[in-house]
Amino acid sequence: MRLLSLRHHNRYLFLLLTALLPINATAAEQQASINDYKLTQLAKPMPAPDFKLLDMDEDTHTLKQYRGKVVLINFWGTWCPPCIREMPSLEKLYLKLKGKPFVMLAINQWEDEERVFEFMGQLKTIPTFPILFDPDSKVSAAFGVKGLPSSYILDKQGRVVYRATGGRDFAHPEIEAKIKSLF
């Protein structure tokens, strides 16, 4: 992609911006609002669009391969402060539900492995769940994502049951309980 070459000219700015994000995350965690754990339950579960994306290790993930498990899909970008703020809570939830029929997929928008890898090094809490790449934003478009972050929780049949527009505290017991109710 011709645009990618331009990105290398901005390494300094990128590092500057990403270096500031942990500061933001700490302050934001202290200012968590009362509704930041609320999820919208769809009146009728909707089949989620299938996808085939690569992760940081260039392994392929399809949504279909996770049928039979509850899936949390999080759309995010390194430039998006609320995406970064909710990342530690996603990791906390992921670790808490490890071993359960649960999968977490963080689908990065527009960026490449090099940028995201560099960014991860700046985080206080490095995610251990799979980071997938949606470089042309086709998967987010198929989900109808209008802004970042946006998250979707799918039941074992691959249907969207819950969604959240904007950042959330995914470590909140209410969210954990909602996910467990789908096991």
């Binding site: 509704n35 609320k38 919208t40 527009w110 209008k146 802004g147 970042l148 527009t165 904007g166 950042g167």
Partner: peptide, 23 residues
């Protein structure tokens, strides 16, 4: 030929309880 569609606030949105967005 630029496929970028982020950073800007969406034209219109409906927010349920707890929803928010910035752009």
């Amino acid at each position: 030929g630029v496929g970028f569609r982020w950073l800007l606030l969406a034209d219109a949105q409906t927010f349920d309880e707890g929803d928010w967005m910035q752009g």
